[in-house]
Deep mutational scan, measured.
Amino acid sequence: MIVFVRFNSSHGFPVEVDSDTSIFQLKEVVAKRQGVPADQLRVIFAGKELRNDWTVQNCDLDQQSIVHIVQRPWRKGQEMNATGGDDPRNAAGGCEREPQSLTRVDLSSSVLPGDSVGLAVILHTDSRKDSPPAGSPAGRSIYNSFYVYCKGPCQRVQPGKLRVQCSTCRQATLTLTQGPSCWDDVLIPNRMSGECQSPHCPGTSAEFFFKCGAHPTSDKETSVALHLIATNSRNITCITCTDVRSPVLVFQCNSRHVICLDCFHLYCVTRLNDRQFVHDPQLGYSLPCVAGCPNSLIKELHHFRILGEEQYNRYQQYGAEECVLQMGGVLCPRPGCGAGLLPEPDQRKVTCEGGNGLGCGFAFCRECKEAYHEGECSAVFEASGTTTQAYRVDERAAEQARWEAASKETIKKTTKPCPRCHVPVEKNGGCMHMKCPQPQCRLEWCWNCGCEWNRVCMGDHWFDV
């Protein structure tokens, strides 16, 4: 396979590697080409510095992935760790964990309700045991953590790749202090920090972006993250068709209702045909949960890209028209025109101005929308079919299609509260000796007794199943 190397943020060049090629071997190839010592090179990928003893497969490097290699003399205490030698983080029983690669970060837990604080980093599902597709590297999971809308060759929703760059020099040479644990960490600028490894760059702020994971991409090709779309790892039924499908869209209502993408497309087109989208002054033209839940309008309007190009163009047109109407304007009634106009409040005669090729020149009556006339309008008909009709959803289907309910059931079956801080902690095999993952707590306690870890627990039921 081919990976592209950008040395000291210059133009990239291809390097041929195998899945079992080590990072140090990659350094040696680059060092020979650039005429520099291999031990002064640092390989940066997806916000993480890659260790010498890791392989291309370990690092989730795919065909035509772009890695950054910078030349920086080692500072005291760094060289041993980078070589894969006596790194205290690798000691058996050590409590410190390697910062998780962005290629394996899962933010789907952050669609849980606000009262489930902490689960994004504490609760991990076991539903990723799908067998890898044919042709994928051994052991590589097909679980997708992110979804994007690819405006490039795909023109559809695709699995996405999370990447990070330095907000100062805009190069992907920043190593994160810690990985993101929720969508806010990724979507809110300057929320996460790190250290830029580019020479002479003092940058410390992280800037995240997404790429389409279905095809090789260049540095400049980015895609918009659709953070309401998630892999259906909890096997929730769709609120409309009641099938279990994946991926799904999880509405931001209190129940976190789930809808499959085909039904979401149908829901949007139906509402669009009836012009029953909601115009929100802050958000724009949007839709609420299909069950009509309060405070559930979709905030990231790129989710409506699921409509496809033709329907999305209609959505944008109707949204612009609705904006004009909300501002007190009118639409030209001549067939084939429909231009938005903003006449004076007491102006009865409205002319669709033909300047700049935008208007048709038609003069019409503001009251009856017919060709302009003197005197009273002959008839004014009330528009028919403008009443909002509820999208029919079966109550039982709505009850079963809740992301929140599956989460709470998982928590109930696989977790116990920490005796000190009461945060839910998952036990997935292993011994009875637990350690609270909350940095402010870190209590060592017994899963069996529910009390602080002691010699009695150690001698009596340390390794009970």
Score class of each variant (00 low, 15 high):
52 N>L: 00
219 D>Q: 08
269 V>P: 01
460 D>F: 06
297 L>A: 05
361 G>Y: 11
325 L>P: 03
76 K>N: 14
68 H>K: 01
362 F>W: 07
45 F>L: 08
283 L>I: 15
32 K>I: 09
209 F>R: 11
368 C>Q: 02
75 R>P: 13
355 G>W: 09
4 F>N: 10
277 F>Q: 00
418 C>G: 01
160 G>H: 00
374 E>H: 05
144 N>K: 09
377 C>G: 02
225 A>M: 03
205 S>N: 12
162 L>Q: 01
172 A>N: 14
103 T>G: 12
108 S>R: 10
22 S>L: 05
338 G>A: 08
74 W>K: 10
22 S>E: 06
405 A>E: 15
330 V>Y: 06
295 N>C: 05
154 C>A: 01
321 E>F: 04
460 D>S: 15
30 V>D: 00
389 Q>E: 13
453 W>P: 02
204 T>Q: 09
32 K>G: 07
186 V>M: 02
368 C>V: 02
257 H>S: 01
434 M>P: 01
71 Q>W: 05
258 V>Q: 01
219 D>F: 07
48 K>C: 04
143 Y>P: 07
136 S>K: 12
408 K>E: 13
249 L>E: 00
93 G>S: 13
367 E>T: 11
282 Q>P: 09
279 H>C: 08
82 A>I: 12
346 D>H: 09
330 V>K: 04
287 L>F: 01
290 V>N: 03
236 I>E: 02
124 H>E: 14
310 E>G: 05
235 N>M: 09
18 D>V: 05
65 S>D: 08
301 L>A: 09
307 L>S: 05
307 L>W: 02
390 A>P: 14
454 N>G: 02
195 E>K: 13
333 P>R: 03
431 C>T: 15
448 N>P: 04
63 Q>S: 13
270 T>Q: 05
33 R>Y: 05
120 A>G: 15
234 R>L: 07
246 S>W: 02
131 S>T: 12
85 G>C: 12
409 E>K: 08
148 V>A: 02
70 V>K: 02
379 A>K: 08
175 T>L: 08
373 H>S: 02
422 H>G: 09
136 S>M: 12
210 F>E: 00
143 Y>I: 08
315 Y>I: 11
370 E>W: 04
120 A>R: 11
235 N>C: 07
399 E>W: 11
297 L>W: 04
132 P>W: 09
370 E>H: 05
363 A>D: 14
82 A>R: 12
347 Q>P: 05
104 R>A: 12
364 F>N: 03
26 L>K: 01
231 T>M: 07
390 A>S: 14
251 F>D: 01
230 A>R: 14
277 F>L: 12
418 C>A: 01
146 F>Y: 12
222 T>V: 07
34 Q>M: 07
15 V>Q: 02
338 G>F: 06
359 G>I: 07
379 A>I: 12
441 C>Q: 01
452 E>Q: 15
276 Q>L: 10
6 R>G: 03
225 A>F: 03
44 I>H: 03
207 E>C: 06
433 H>S: 04
286 S>G: 00
65 S>G: 06
166 C>I: 01
198 S>F: 08
427 K>G: 09
237 T>H: 12
337 C>I: 03
44 I>E: 03
237 T>Q: 14
